[in-house]
């Protein structure tokens, strides 16, 4: 739906998808973060509804203060499209509560995905960490220079979640790499 048309009372969850809101002009997600629509979404989050931000949606959530931290330009200073593995390290969020797998394969596609936050807090809030197939987290698997290999975080309550990888692109076997649908497993968490 168009962002100006959101009626918060009609929905129990919001997904802010990836894209380039307002062309990412000024800073990724910053203009969208100051729209009235985001005020409504904050209200929804306060009511305990689920708010999921994917890629640019994650950037909007950090820019608007719904999630802690910030997303800076990748260390390589360029856009990176790549299939990665992420290890799921929190199971107290809406999305990861009943997840049958602990390592997921999904693609990233972003220029500003280097998550930064004071390390102790980051460790507490992180939900997804870039890893290898086995779930081993190391700098070798960090595509963008994020602190602690963080690919996504949630708020303390676990109802506001943001991640840079694209679960929706790993939800259809035809278009997914090797036919996996790990992203769909994650998105099923929206049905609660």
């Amino acid at each position: 739906m168009r962002y100006k048309d959101l009626d918060p009372d009609r929905y129990s969850s919001v997904v802010i998808p990836g894209g380039f809101s307002f062309g990412d002009y000024l800073r990724a997600g910053s203009i969208a973060a100051s729209t009235e629509t985001m005020e409504m979404i904050k209200e929804m989050a306060n009511q305990g509804k689920t708010v999921l931000g994917i890629c640019n949606g994650f950037q909007i959530l950090t820019e608007s203060g719904l999630l802690k931290g910030a997303l800076l330009p990748n260390l390589k200073m360029r856009f990176i499209s790549k299939w990665v593995y992420v290890k799921v390290v929190r199971d107290d969020t809406r999305l990861t509560k009943n997840l049958p797998k602990k390592v997921l394969r999904m693609p990233i596609a972003h220029a500003e995905g280097r998550f930064v936050l004071e390390e102790e807090e980051a460790r507490r809030l992180m939900v997804f960490q870039y890893s290898n197939e086995k779930g081993e987290v190391s700098e070798d698997y960090n595509p963008n220079g994020s602190v602690l290999n963080i690919a996504g975080i949630a708020n303390e309550e676990g109802n506001v979640i943001g991640l840079m990888p694209h679960p929706e692109r790993a939800s259809f076997s035809l278009t997914s790499i090797d036919g996996n649908v790990d992203g769909l497993l994650l998105l099923r968490g929206l049905r609660w």
Binding site: G18, F79, I80, S81, P107, A109, T175
Partner: peptide
């Protein structure tokens, strides 16, 4: 080169 392109946006890219 191609990793700088969002080659899967639209979720319809079957052979990448």
């Amino acid at each position: 080169a191609y990793s700088q392109f969002d080659y899967e946006v639209g979720t319809s890219t079957v052979v990448k």
